[in-house]
Design a protein around this nucleic acid. Structure first.
Lengths: 211, 211, 211, 211
DNA sequence: TATGAATGAGTATTCATTCAT
DNA sequence: TATGAATGAATACTCATTCAT
């Protein structure tokens, strides 16, 4: 009994510390960029010696992978939450797409995290194949509701997948522009452009349905 | 007189050498990725000592900047060339947009070059403000024909700029997906999606015009 | 009474665990070499945390020392056993010397253990003085029967000691050559050379005796 | 002309610096042992930053290899010199063997260098195969005069090689004992034992010749 | 214009050991 | 007796840059 309690407490403390390290890592990733973030910097930010981190994570890469995993999980949650508040399939489609966009518009550091995955000479790289797949799956999970809504609107499976790709691409591109300040070059507002794009896509689908 | 000639010759030689270094840099960037490319590697590939490069470029960053500048100039040329072959404004719009997309689809290493600029904690970074503006201008130059075509199709100035942003964003997003192989996740083809998007946008404009 | 029993049991358990750790250490020493063997590796092989080993041994060095001590004890046993099977003093001399040689020829990992002691900038080093003496004694014990046999053959004390040194040296040198494969450079066989040397030395002694 | 001079001077300076680094390395190898000697320590001893050493040597291993190579070359020279001073083949045999022994008896740090080569779990290791062979050759070169002298004394080729092995082994063993202070355990003197062994071996050969 | 040598800061990871629990 | 977490020192090697020549 007592022992169980102690073990439970230890585990909790351990996880708390892991969390603190991940917070520090997030901060450092944000401040120094992902390539620039050294294990030393993360450790220091977390109030640790570099060596100490190895009790909590296998490697620097593992820290990044976990931070990213959490980010993607949050994204998926945000998308799911948005959908529950929508009634019609059309609204669901719009809500899901905009939730995806807004998650990254509101959390630029998560955007960096995500883009990092999309680069590096620019193939997956770094994180082992295994990890890469885990992350792909997470992304798929977050994006899937968009395809579901599209199918509910009458789109065939393939059409729905293409729409997903289109929405992902448009969001990614706009976020890129917004995040680097270059959107101003065009006198545009990323959220408004995103909305316009999503509305257009939704409209196209609903019109097709009628016919 | 004689002196002028000598100076002229010296300048020519100097620029030739710069060019050789840039060729080497391009090769190394492609082979090792942008972060992985060391000055030493570039120097070696160019048949120089690292120290020697500093007579031709201010810094490693400056080499990258110049390679990027040339890439953007090539892009602009590709877009311009595409337009001259199109007759109607609608065709020009399509041609310009697709030329932009294709330039990067066909030259993935130039895509890396470009994306690299769009990252690094994602802020302008590294390259001084000055340089950043030069590069912005180059990008603007390459993209401008799209806006021109849109205006020829009857769009107002602001509308044209927004269209430009949309096309840039969609292209960038699709290129990201294609370049990382993730486009397969969606069972999609980037060029076809791009074409569809551009056709849709052009159609919207021409229909508005009629009304 | 009861207490004594309990203490006895505890001691026994403790020694058993020490033994398990030493088994693990031997395995790791053999697999990774002596310098390459980390405490962590030994601990893991023994099913322990590194920290746990400190309840059983003072330091990593202490583990090595004990493994070596046991090896030397085994050597002494092997030599003693060989002697009991020999009848004449001449045979005893030969048997002891060859047993010494063969012990190491057959157990190369024990040879490493022994040579390691003989190195490290080559001074006693590491293991405290105390330990060094314990080990010297063990070596002496293992080698002594050779001197005894020599004296039985008529050699004076000093002569016998010199013979011991000679035999030790010749064996060590040949083992070095054999263990590193360099004996092949000479087209020689270590055991045969050792036998020849020992036979020669024995003969010299017996001839002296006759005169 | 002038240029040639400058280049010559530069080369000379460069080699001098290499030499200083090697001196420092020798000192550190002696003081810390071979495994313990860090690049940092060598650099510091030489008055350099660690990074600076890489302009003079490819790697830490390369430094060790060169130090060892020089040591073996000196050994070969010492043996050769000793022979020229001897008249009869018997004297040459004795002189060569004792020169080999004395070189290491007088330069214990070179002994460490050599033994290191003979160990490491205890196979060649570390230094690439290539280097290992270079060093084997050097050793062979240093030892060869012993076999030559033996053949001049009438020994057949194989016999001469075995004698070489015997002498090498005895010397190595005695040096081991002497270098670790353990020779005292036997109340013996390494040089005297070596002389006795060599004299005995020489005598055996000359007697065989007579018969 | 070019080199060779040098620097100082930086990299991720490993190690034996200690200590509170 | 055993653990998990922590430390501080260490490792070889790389990098962009500078400077005397």
């Amino acid at each position: 009994m007592e022992q169980e309690q102690r073990i439970g407490r230890q585990k909790a403390v351990s996880e708390l510390k892991r969390g603190l390290i991940m917070d520090a890592a997030r901060k450092v990733f944000e401040a120094e960029g992902l390539e620039g973030a050294s294990l030393r910097a993360i450790a220091t930010a977390a109030g640790y010696t570099p060596a100490a981190l190895y009790f909590h994570f296998e490697s620097k890469e593992a820290i990044y992978a976990e931070v990213l995993r959490e980010s993607l999980a949050d994204l998926a949650k945000a998308v799911a939450r948005a959908i529950t508040r929508a009634k019609t399939p059309a609204d669901q489609l719009r809500a899901a797409a905009m939730a995806f966009f807004r998650y990254y518009a509101d959390n630029p550091k998560d955007l960096d995290l995500g883009f990092y995955l999309f680069r590096g000479g620019m193939k997956p790289h770094g994180l082992g194949k295994e990890r890469d797949e885990i992350l792909n799956t997470a992304l798929e999970l977050a994006m899937h509701p968009i395809a579901d809504a599209a199918q509910a609107l009458g789109a065939r499976h393939e059409e729905a997948r293409l729409l997903m790709a289109d929405i992902f691409a448009h969001a990614a591109g706009l976020l890129l522009l917004a995040h680097t300040g270059r959107i101003r070059m065009f006198g545009a507002s990323a959220p408004r452009l995103m909305e316009r794009f999503v509305d257009g896509a939704t409209l196209d689908l609903t019109e097709k349905k009628k016919r």
